[in-house]
Nucleic acid binder design. Structure first.
Lengths: 141, 141
DNA sequence: TAGCACATTGGAATGATTCTGATCTAGGAG
DNA sequence: CTCCTAGATCAGAATCATTCCAATGTGCTA
């Protein structure tokens, strides 16, 4: 399954599989049911359940490591802290609720817009993009 | 001109026109030649030229006030601090250079994408959006 | 199984932003 | 024009997310 695959990918990059790292990865993959996008603190609390003495620093170092290895991506919902998600579910964007802070995932991607931008600005070398939609989810209206 | 207009708009909302506020607004409007998008600290240094004892706190309170009044907007270029711009130049997006941090403004807006999203997710009430393109500007490639 | 390069820990440091309590002032009332 | 006060400013301390540091612990290769 996904976790095995992700661990294998990490190992293939010469990264040590410590229990803390495995647990962070497991949480990103398995404990984000529905529309949860966890903050570092939330991940820390979850890891603590199994490894009570894990430090905050380890969480951040691990998350940054996973990002460098392409297994996690960071999100910014303008709520004061970074949020993280597993990067193995394909490219997507988010609908962010301004009241409850939850984010729904959106498969749709404005690729054709990118092409138009590239034509308009040939001098700029595009490497990535972000499309975020703000508003109120059904529950919060 | 623009500054007069903006000050008038502020007054109309019952906001006191202190010299510090006027200077912050003037800097946002007049001193951002080219593609500068100022951080709070940069604005602070500029205000200090005229009001040497201005506090950092005043800069932040003023910027947040201007945002609430619709005269400024905040930008996030993922470089660790918020950046600000005058909100009277029309809706636009940004091409952010990952090397030098500068942002070019992009008049093009993926409005049609928004419409498609709205059809796809009728339950979500859209109030705003952000479209950011990351990459390398001509100078930095 | 041993050894060491790399990870983890706890606490302190950093940097952006906001709060606090004392002092000052913009701008309306007289 | 002057007075008055709600609201603004100031300096410095507090807060919050994130990272650094030095000591200690541990995956994993040989």
């Amino acid at each position: 399954m996904k976790l095995e695959e992700a661990l294998h990918k990490l190992k293939a990059q010469g990264v040590r599989l410590t229990p803390q790292r495995q647990e962070v990865l497991r949480i990103l993959i398995e404990e984000t049911d529905g529309e949860e996008h966890l903050s570092a603190e939330e991940i820390w609390r979850l890891v603590q359940k199994r490894y009570a003495s894990v430090s905050f620093d380890t969480i951040y170092r691990t998350l940054n490591l996973l990002i460098r290895c392409g297994l996690a991506s960071e999100l910014d919902f303008s709520d004061g802290c970074r949020r993280f998600e597993f990067a193995g579910n394909g490219h997507h964007h988010h609908l962010v609720c301004l009241k409850c802070g939850r984010a729904e995932e959106l498969a749709f991607c404005p690729e054709d817009c990118l092409a138009r931008v590239q034509v308009e600005r040939p001098g700029f070398k595009i490497t990535g993009h972000a499309f975020k939609i703000y508003g109120y989810c059904q529950r919060c209206q």
